[in-house]
């Protein structure tokens, strides 16, 4: 199947997942926020978010045997670069009040101004980074 068709199907699944959380539980879906609450190590704070992360983890464990193509790609770059990127993404998302799921999916889907600005800023800085590193395939 063409990448764009798979993108559309996957996009439907992502939208439905966010809607289930919004309508079923009553809050927007945001992975960095869920991880932050889970890292409080207080079960009452983390609550149902642990069940959400467990659902993700189950699929993550099944992907290697069910749909390995999706995760066959090992991130490129040295471990130092990867570690720095992980720190920047984690800290950046918390300072920005959300990551791609919270801002670009739920926030933009609810037409929130701050989320639209956040998405524009991180796409622009991501694009500048890819350009300075010599392109997406580099």
């Amino acid at each position: 199947m063409h990448d764009y068709v798979l993108g559309l199907i996957g996009g439907v699944l992502l939208g439905l997942a966010a809607l289930v959380v919004r309508l079923g539980i009553g809050v927007p879906l945001g992975i960095s926020g869920f991880l932050s609450k889970a890292l409080s190590f207080r079960p009452k704070v983390a609550d149902w978010r642990l069940a959400f992360l467990a659902g993700m983890a189950l699929v993550a464990l099944l992907l290697p045997s069910v749909y390995p193509v999706a995760i066959s790609e090992v991130p490129s770059g040295g471990l130092g670069l990867i570690a720095l990127a992980g720190l920047l993404v984690g800290a950046g998302a918390r300072f920005a009040g959300g990551c791609t799921s919270g801002h670009s999916l739920c926030g933009m889907g609810n037409l929130e101004g701050d989320s639209i600005v956040a998405t524009v800023v991180f796409i622009a800085s991501g694009a500048a980074t890819v350009f300075l590193m010599g392109g997406g395939l580099g």
């Binding site: 993700m56 770059g77 990867i82 993404v89 950046g92 920005a96 009040g97 980074t129």
Partner: peptide
């Protein structure tokens, strides 16, 4: 400042490796 600096940090890290929090979890199985 915190909001904009956070988004720039996020974008730079995202561009460096191509992973954000959700996809990082999805890839843990490898």
């Amino acid at each position: 400042f915190r909001f904009f600096a956070g988004n720039v940090c996020f974008g730079v890290g995202w561009g460096m490796v191509g992973l954000c929090p959700g996809p990082a979890i999805a890839n843990l199985g490898q």
